[in-house]
Structure formats: structure tokens, C-alpha cells
């Protein structure tokens, strides 16, 4: 059962700049409806206007939420459902967990969680679980979480998952990107092989965005500027993500980690199922979700 692209609805987080905005643009160009999520009402309005200029046909709306605050992530569930209702749509066909942040200094969120852990991992985990019933209502749905090649050097320290006691910004970032893959694997395992919802973790490659320059010390911004100059454009990175969102033929490909539309071996750490199950439990607890809940119908 295929839904035509013009009948698909996709939620994209962090859709106000960088890769997320490029994904939203590509979707809208192809006629899909988009619900973008951003933290700044101003940037949300600007992005929405831009998308409308690209293609006035599909439905486009933005919701403002600070994804570092769990209460705001939870609140998105009802807001997305309301939008679907007004658009007369029954289901969500895709979710792109793209919002991500880098923090040089340790920052604790309102909930008392390390900022990168909260935005890059927990928000993706909680939003996916919150929107899951809407995704399951579609004939086929995809959850694409934007991970990164930085996960290759990462290793979770179970005694200090958020690196609160030994904080290092880059290491903490890599850990969240490893968590993205473990989450994706465990999600697929829990959903089971028959599931219509499939999760993928995407490595966008090195992309020329401003991620390393937001609220970071001068020297760090400078290093990022230098590094990203060898990168690809956000539009190129978006192509690989849209492929994972829409390509019907990959539904049964077991690989969880993809780069530029090709399956890729994730790190050894990322392939450990025990770690994936353990992380899921801890994340459920941190988000106040029932710890033992299992979505498999079997």
C-alpha cells in the first residue's frame, strides 16, 4: 500500500536551519506536507514563509518548542495531532529527529539533564514514542534519526552517561550520536519484523552548517569553520535523509545505519544489543515513560 508523496505528512525537528531546513525544503518541493519544529518562533515563521514560496501546494506548519525541555516535547504530541485533524489527515508517514546541538561547557537543562543528552538523544527518544501511534496509523512510516560519524569514537560510560563528572563537549556529542543508533536498533527490535514503522539512523557526512558556532567559544567556532569547509551542502545531506524517508524498497533491509543512501557499518559499540536495551530502559525512566512497555504486537 503506497501513499503518494503528495499525501504524505512528515515531522522534521530542528527545521529552522542547516540539514533540517534542507530536508523540509526537499520534502515540500516534492509535494509532501511538513510539520517543522524549531525553538525560535521568529525563525519558525521565516522558515515557513520560505517553504511556502518554494511550493504553495502542500500543507506546511511550524510548531515552536524547546526540545531541551521534556514538558515541551511531550506537549508536541497533541499539537501534531491537532494539525493532522485540521488537515484532515489520519496519520504521520515520517519523523525526522534532526534537531541537534553542541555545547562546549556542561549545561544542565530545566529538567536537570546535560543539554546535548537532552536535545540530541532524549528529545528524539521521547518525541518518537509520543508520535508512535500516529506513525503506526500510516500504511508505512519511517523514523529517521540524524546521527553522525562522531559516534565512531564514542563509548558510553554507564556510571556517568551524561559525562556530568568528566564533561568534554565533543565526547558528550559523540555519545549522543551513538545513543541515536542504539535507540534506532532497539526501536526496530521492539517493533518487530512485521512492523509498518521502520527506524533508520542517518550519517549525513560532514555538512557546511552553523552547528559548531552557536554559543561556542571563539576558538571552537573558528575550528568548526575550518573543518566544515571540506563538507557538503545541507541540500546534499538532505537527499540521503529523504531517501530513507520515502524509498519503499529498503523497508526490509536490516541495516540501521545509513550514509548517503547506502547502508554502512556502525561502530562496534553501536551494534551491541545489550547496550541498546539498557539505554532504552534508562531513557524511558528519564522521560517518565513506562519502563517495560513493549510495542511489539507479538
Amino acid at each position: 500500500m503506497e501513499t503518494r508523496i503528495s499525501e504524505k505528512t512528515v515531522v522534521v525537528t530542528g527545521a529552522t536551519s542547516g540539514i533540517g531546513l534542507a530536508v523540509a525544503e526537499e520534502l515540500v518541493r516534492s509535494g509532501a506536507s511538513v510539520i517543522g519544529i524549531g525553538r525560535s518562533a521568529e525563525r519558525c515563521a521565516a522558515a515557513q514563509a520560505g517553504l511556502h514560496r518554494l511550493n504553495p501546494e502542500p500543507w506546511v506548519a511550524y510548531l515552536t518548542a524547546d526540545l531541551s525541555v521534556q514538558g515541551e516535547v511531550r506537549g508536541l504530541g497533541n499539537q501534531v495531532r491537532d494539525l493532522l485533524d485540521t488537515w484532515n489527515r489520519q496519520a504521520l508517514d515520517g519523523l525526522v529527529n534532526n534537531a541537534g546541538t553542541f555545547s562546549y561547557w556542561l549545561t544542565l537543562t530545566a529538567d536537570g539533564v546535560e543539554l546535548q543528552w537532552a536535545v540530541n538523544h532524549l528529545a528524539a527518544f521521547l518525541l518518537t514514542n509520543t508520535l508512535l501511534p500516529m506513525l503506526q496509523a500510516a500504511p508505512l512510516a519511517r523514523v529517521v534519526t540524524v546521527s553522525s560519524g562522531s559516534h565512531y569514537n564514542a563509548r558510553l560510560d554507564w556510571n556517568d552517561l551524561q559525562l556530568r563528572r568528566h564533561y568534554n563537549g565533543l565526547q558528550a556529542y559523540g555519545n549522543t550520536k551513538l545513543a541515536n543508533i542504539l535507540f534506532t536498533r532497539e526501536m526496530n527490535r521492539r517493533l518487530g519484523e512485521e512492523s509498518t514503522v521502520r527506524a533508520f539512523a542517518a550519517d549525513p557526512g560532514l555538512v557546511k552548517t552553523d552547528i559548531g558556532m552557536k554559543g561556542t567559544p571563539g576558538i571552537v567556532s573558528w575550528v568548526w569553520k575550518l573543518r566544515r569547509s571540506g563538507g557538503i551542502t545541507a541540500a546534499e545531506a538532505a537527499r540521503g535523509i529523504c531517501y530513507l524517508l520515502t524509498e519503499p524498497s529498503i523497508q526490509d533491509v536490516p541495516s540501521s545505519y545509513w550514509k548517503h543512501g547506502q547502508p554502512k557499518a556502525a561502530s562496534h559499540e553501536a551494534q551491541n544489543c545489550l547496550n541498546a536495551a539498557r539505554l532504552w530502559k534508562i531513557s524511558s525512566q528519564m522521560c517518565g515513560l513506562p519502563v517495560e512497555e513493549c510495542y511489539a504486537n507479538a
Partner: peptide
Amino acid sequence: VECASRGWDLFLTDMNAPALETLAAGLRRS
């Protein structure tokens, strides 16, 4: 956060009531 992660029960005070309650709820959960 450090005390909570060590399993210690807490009494928190500050000026901002909603911020305190959000933090407390996060610590209870985690």
C-alpha cells in the same frame, strides 16, 4: 543532580517555584 544521582533524598529551595518543580520532577523520574 549529583546528589540525586547518588540516591540521596533532597529538599530544594530557590526563588523560582516552577523552575524548582520542573527540576524536582526530573530528578524524581531519573
